[in-house]
């Protein structure tokens, strides 16, 4: 490769006085002075959350308002900072149409002081029951307050409109004689 020697142009007298440069700089900064401000005034103005944002993880229900989590504990296993604790239990007796699911979380805790918002729990979940949603601000006065329990997680997550109804299909397939849907 050819070597190209660049010659630095000698400065003109005006450039060496530095004054035209300072004046031009002053003009630039003055334009910035008059320009609209870039700052978002936070508590009143909120930033737009882009799709795919990884906020506070939460549990979601299906469109019929039924629990999706089957307490398989994959998320607990995959969670790098070990923020998730699940106490597995049986499906509550008042949900007869879901007894074939066999398991449901008795308690589901995410310690938000440990959570690193990596989204691996969402990725690993076979039931699409846990999602990292839009909420980005978590505060509390005590460590205990920063642990989200099952009730809080469902309150945060709400209902998600994807109509898979995996377990309904499985039940229907079973009653129709097939092993799988």
């Amino acid at each position: 490769m050819a070597v190209i020697t660049l010659h630095r142009k000698p400065l003109t007298f005006a450039e060496r006085t530095y004054l035209p440069q300072v004046a031009a700089g002053l003009w630039t900064t003055f334009k910035h002075l008059l320009r609209p401000k870039e700052t978002l005034e936070y508590p009143e103005q909120r930033p737009a959350i882009p799709p795919g944002y990884r906020g506070v993880p939460a549990l979601v229900k299906d469109p019929h308002g039924r629990e999706k989590c089957v307490s398989c504990q994959l998320c607990e296993f995959v969670c790098p900072p070990k923020a998730i604790r699940i106490t597995p239990g049986a499906v509550p007796a008042d949900q007869p149409e879901r007894t074939h699911v066999e398991k449901a979380p008795q308690e589901f805790e995410i310690d938000m002081l440990r959570c690193i918002y990596c989204g691996l729990c969402q990725e690993v979940c076979p039931e699409e029951a846990i999602f990292l949603q839009n909420q980005y601000s978590m505060t509390g006065y005590s460590r205990a307050e920063m642990v989200n329990n099952k009730e809080k997680l469902y309150a945060l997550g709400g209902t998600r409109p994807d109509a898979h109804y995996k377990w309904d299909k499985k039940k229907a397939a079973e009653s129709a004689g097939g092993a799988h849907h």
Binding site: H32, R35, K37, E38, T39
Partner: peptide, 10 residues
């Protein structure tokens, strides 16, 4: 304030 205004802040 002037610093902020020049930098596009409040």
């Amino acid at each position: 304030k002037v610093s902020a205004w020049i930098q596009g802040r409040y």
